[in-house]
């Protein structure tokens, strides 16, 4: 019963991290870039929200500022990648490293800052898990609806084309550099928004809260693909499957922690799980091509 009682909390966390997975989906799946900025921009979002709220700002305005701060982080990575010609992964790592200092500054040179739900009017909190789940889903619905609209526009189409085939995009007059920057800006804005929600949920922002965020985001995207890939084809549903992936991830984590996994080993466990899920499509292809070869050989002999 103790275990069942912890599931709603896992779901709430999963939904919020699922929002961050939507951001990862935009870079990893749509732009075809693994953007490691998110480990930093997630924390930036949390830090900005906490400091603004503690400073007396309206919570929605603080959320907006957190989003914009994430957008700026994405912009920096985008400029490193396109104007400096740095490979996307390295560009993201550089921004992420730089953000560590920036985030410390935002947090007033402290490693963490608390944000009590008793003192401030927060949108969600682990004290009110049911409300948090509902708020999380409202954010998911709004974000997916906006992205669904955006990627159906001329600009959205051109960004998808950029991620799919750059030669084709340029041949059709699309500025691929500009589009990559827009994608990175949007993605990191959403990631920061997720960080802002998490900091409210847990009641503090911590300089290390984003560490390994990219792995969790990828895990959510990949789990979503593996579980729902066959039935969810539509763009909006694919975004939703990333959120569901986040929920599944957190439920599984909760289960393994209950089963006695040392919390310190959690990141090791997460990394191995993601490696495993990334490997599955690769192994699947290998097995399929082997079977095809085998069958062909058989037909030839008969």
């Amino acid at each position: 019963m103790d275990f069942l009682a912890s599931l709603p909390g896992a779901a709430a966390q999963g939904i919020i991290w699922g929002i961050m997975a939507i951001g990862v989906f935009l870079t990893y799946r749509v732009l075809d870039v693994a953007d490691l900025t998110v480990d930093g921009s997630f924390t930036t979002g949390g830090a900005v929200l906490v400091m603004c709220t503690v400073g007396g700002m309206n919570i929605y305005l603080a959320m907006l500022l957190a989003f914009i701060a994430g957008c700026i982080a994405g912009l920096v990575t985008g400029i490193f990648h396109t104007a400096f010609g740095i490979p996307a992964i390295l560009a993201g790592i550089l921004t992420q490293l730089a953000l560590y200092s920036v985030n410390l500054r935002i947090l007033g040179n402290k490693a963490n800052q608390t944000l009590s739900v008793m003192k401030y009017d927060l949108l969600l909190s682990l004290r009110y898990i049911n409300k948090s789940i509902i708020v999380g889903f409202i954010f998911v619905a709004i974000i997916i609806a906006l992205l669904y609209w955006f990627f159906g526009t001329e600009l959205g189409h051109s960004i998808r084309a950029t991620g799919c085939n750059q030669a084709m995009a340029r041949a059709n007059g699309i500025n691929t550099d500009k589009n990559k920057i827009i994608g990175l800006v949007l993605s990191n804005g959403i990631v920061a928004l997720s960080g802002a929600l998490i900091s409210q949920y847990q009641g503090f922002a911590d300089i290390n809260m984003g560490r390994g965020a990219i792995v969790i985001g990828l895990a959510a995207v990949i789990i979503g693909d593996v579980v729902f890939g066959k039935i969810f084809k539509n763009f909006a549903l694919r975004l939703l499957s990333a959120v569901f992936g986040g929920i599944i991830y957190y439920v599984v984590i909760t289960i393994v922690l209950r089963m006695g996994l040392n919390a310190n080993d959690l990141k090791l466990f997460s990394a191995l799980v993601v490696a495993l899920f990334l490997g599955i499509p690769f192994w699947k292809n290998k097995i399929v091509s082997k079977t095809i070869k085998h069958n062909k050989g058989g037909a030839g002999n008969a």
Partner: peptide, 13 residues
């Protein structure tokens, strides 16, 4: 996408 070659990509459908 090809029909919009040479034109600005806007937020229209």
């Amino acid at each position: 996408i090809a029909a919009r070659r040479g034109l600005a990509r806007t937020l229209k459908p």
